[in-house]
Design a protein around this nucleic acid. Sequence first.
DNA 1: AAAAAAG
Length: 473
Amino acid sequence: MSFAELGLSDELLKTVEAAGYTDPTPIQKQAIPSVLMMRDLIGIAQTGTGKTASFVLPMIDILAEGRSRARMPRSLILEPTRELAAQVAENFEKYGKNHKLSMALLIGGVQMGDQVKALEKGVDVLIATPGRLMDLFERGKILLTGCNLLVIDEADRMLDMGFIPDIENICTKLPPNRQTLLFSATMPPPIKKLADKFLSNPKTIEVARPASTNLNITQRLVPAPSSAFAKRDLLRRLLNAEDVRTAIIFCNRKTTVRELNKSLKKHGFRSAEIHGDMDQSSRIAELDRFKAGDVNILVASDVAARGLDIKGVSHVFNFDAPWHPDDYVHRIGRTGRAGATGTAYTLVTSADAEAIENIEKLQGQKIERLGEVPGGETNETAPAEKKGRGRKPKAEKPEAAAVADTPRGEAARPAPPREERARQERPRDDRRRDERPARRDRRFEAQDEGPDGKDDGGWNGPVPDFLNFTIPA
DNA sequence: AAAAAAG
């Protein structure tokens, strides 16, 4: 089935074709005709399924007729994060460039002035995060009485973020006879209730989770020590061992994002960072540096886990195993996009057993365990890290133990540039490789060193069954 | 356990 059979206008079909798309995705095939028929819709789909175009395209055709009036937007799209909202706006620009649609992006973290100006001129499409929308609404800058089309995107994530009361509030301000489209990756009871309350006779469409069926992504688990210091060493070895063109590295905490980015830069990697504590302009700037190729590594919190569509990401690394299995699916979905192949590594510490179990349960498949990471040398000295005056983040504490694991002379040696390091990968040591006590294996041997684990922050005890690990001989 | 979103 082609786009031409979905009922879109000829003009729009030309734009879609020019953008290089020939075949609609399953959700587009099912959703577009229904949306054009003005039906309410529940779309159970992840990002990466072509979900955005499944509402953007028909909306462009629906809005092509009619004109907007001051402060009375004709349609509203709600997104959970600013980045996602901006991305949807980009989609409207891309597909709507031959239609004279006006649009306003209402997100926090930026000046209100331009947003207010756009509203006063009148817009066809409003793309918003709930906070800023409510704010502007309460200031009387928006009237929602002419808003006949509502899209609630990533509803389950809105729920996670506590936005449901806001969404309900917004829904009551729209005309009751409007068309409503609700998209969600999962259907927990509160979302079901929301749909029952605000949608009428909706058509339900469900498409497969992309990440669980995305065979383009090679997934691996890497047993990791628990100290942040030793973990970063392991990560650097992975980065050097792999053909990493562009990578997103996810951490569970904003502090970890900052520390890791700092550390990577110190070690000669070209990296940027993104998390929710940064102001919006820095977030955009860092993301742009990554998109433009100024840096090839982006260290990120889960703000970047969902929906972000960045082309050509070759690797995803989970520096921390995510606590929720859904987050894992979203994170690794940043690679292997649009038919490309990708690799996703997850560093797993002994504390992550349950998280990994849940991830594998969700995916319905085991993830390959990686037994060995080349390298095993560390050039980072923990004292250098300590220099930053003042309080040290809690997570860094176990690093003291890791220092003991660094051979004396090695610790003082300054980090060579990255390219050189690859060449002098093996240490100056005449003994044959197999005669040497393989340093990289110590983390796996730590099981013999007793439960106090004062060695390198490695496994405190036997390798857990869940990792089902073969220890290198 | 965290992160996200209004300022």
